[in-house]
C-alpha cells in the first residue's frame, strides 16, 4: 500500500471540481494511457482579465493522479494565467503534503496539463519535454531516462560519477546494481557506434562518499553524551561531504541551529524551491542518520539574519 498523506486520500475519496466544464475556453489533454495516467484539465478564463474563473478535471489514473488533478483545480482558481504558469509540480505535491517518490509523475502530469491548457487558450502550440523511465534511485527520485542521458552526454563510467552528476545512488546505495547495468548498456552502445568514447574527465573534486558508510567512531568512553560542539562538527562534516553535489546544481546548505536530534538547515541558491529540494532534505537526513547512528530530523530554515 502506498504511504499517501491524509490530504491525498481526502482529495481522492472526495474529489472537488471533477467532471466536464461546459463553458471551458481552455482545455489541456496530457498523459499516456500506456503508463496508466491521463488528464483533461478544463478552464474558464475571463478574456478581459485573464483570471481563471473556474476549473474542472477528468482523470484516468491512480489515487494520487486523481488527487493531484483535483488539488490543482483548487489551487489555480482565481489566479491569472501568468500566475498559474508559475505553479510547479512541486507546488502541487506540497499542497497535498507530499507524494511518494514513485508518484511524483502524477504532479508532473498536473503541471503539464496546466501549461497545455494555457497554451490552448492562447493559441500556442504546447510541446511536451517530459521524459520518464523506471525509477532507479528512490532516495533522490532519479529515473533511468535521466541517468542514461547523463551517462551518454558526459561519458560517465563509474557509479561515483553518476552520483556526482545526478545524485542517483548517493543515498542508501541499494540501486547501485541498476546504475551499473545502465553504465554497461550505454557505454556498450557508445563503443558499438565506434565513436571514440567521449570521456570528459570531470574536474578533480571530492567525490560523494558512496561506499557503505561506517558509523562514526563512538566517542571516547569518558564523554558519554555528545557535546554540542562535537555534534556541530559531525553535521558540518556530513554537509562538507555532500556539498560538491549540491554545488554542482548551483546550491548550498548552511547549518542554522541544532536542537536535540533536529537539525535546522538553510538551503540556498538553486536548492531553494528546486524541484527536488524535498528529496535533497530526505537525502541529507539519511546521511546524518548514518553518521549519528540514530534518527535525525532535518528542518529547512531561514538564514540566521532572519531568524
Amino acid at each position: 500500500m502506498w504511504d499517501y498523506s491524509d490530504k491525498v486520500k481526502d482529495y481522492f475519496f472526495n474529489p472537488v471540481n471533477a467532471g466536464v466544464l461546459e463553458e471551458a475556453n481552455a482545455v489541456g489533454d496530457v498523459g499516456s494511457i500506456s503508463c496508466g495516467d491521463a488528464l483533461r484539465l478544463m478552464l474558464k478564463v475571463d478574456p478581459e482579465t485573464d483570471v481563471i474563473l473556474d476549473a474542472r478535471f477528468q482523470t484516468f489514473g491512480c489515487g494520487s493522479a486523481i488527487a493531484s488533478s483535483s488539488a490543482l483545480t483548487e489551487m489555480i482558481k482565481g489566479m491569472t494565467l501568468d500566475q498559474a504558469l508559475k505553479v510547479t509540480n512541486q507546488d502541487i505535491a506540497a499542497y497535498l503534503d507530499g507524494l511518494p517518490p514513485e508518484k511524483m509523475h502524477c504532479s508532473v502530469m498536473g503541471a503539464e496539463a496546466l501549461h497545455a491548457a494555457i497554451a490552448n487558450y492562447r493559441g500556442e502550440e504546447w510541446k511536451d519535454d517530459h521524459e520518464e523511465g523506471e525509477l532507479v534511485c528512490k532516495c533522490f527520485g532519479v529515473d533511468a531516462a535521466l541517468i542514461e542521458r547523463t551517462v551518454r552526454d558526459n561519458g560517465l563510467v563509474t557509479v561515483e560519477q553518476v552520483a556526482n552528476y545526478t545524485k542517483a545512488g548517493g543515498g542508501c546505495c541499494s540501486c547501485h546494481e541498476k546504475i551499473e547495468d545502465i553504465l554497461i548498456a550505454v557505454n556498450g552502445e557508445l563503443a558499438a557506434t565506434a565513436k571514440p568514447a567521449i570521456v570528459q574527465q570531470p574536474k578533480p573534486r571530492t567525490l560523494v562518499q558512496i561506499a557503505p558508510l561506517k558509523p562514526e567512531p563512538a566517542p571516547a568512553p569518558a564523554k558519554p553524551a555528545m557535546t554540542m560542539v562535537r555534534k556541530i562538527q559531525l553535521i558540518e562534516k556530513v554537509l562538507e561531504d555532500i556539498r560538491p553535489s549540491l554545488k554542482m546544481d548551483g546550491g548550498n546548505a548552511e547549518l542554522i541551529d541544532v536542537d536535540g536530534d533536529t537539525v535546522y538547515l538553510h538551503l540556498t541558491g538553486a536548492c531553494m524551491g528546486c524541484s527536488s529540494s524535498g528529496l535533497t532534505i530526505a537525502g541529507i537526513q539519511e546521511r546524518l542518520m548514518l553518521a549519528f547512528g540514530k534518527p535525525m530530523r532535518v528542518v529547512p530554515s531561514k538564514p540566521t539574519a532572519e531568524v
Binding site: D29, V30, I33, R40, Q58, T59, F60
Partner: peptide, 20 residues
C-alpha cells in the same frame, strides 16, 4: 471521473487524445 467516459458510456467519438 474518466476522460474516456461520456454521460452513460464510453465516448462514441473519442475526443480525448492526450499530448504524449
Amino acid at each position: 471521473l474518466s476522460p474516456y467516459w461520456g454521460k452513460d458510456g464510453p465516448k462514441a467519438t473519442p475526443d480525448f487524445a492526450p499530448a504524449y
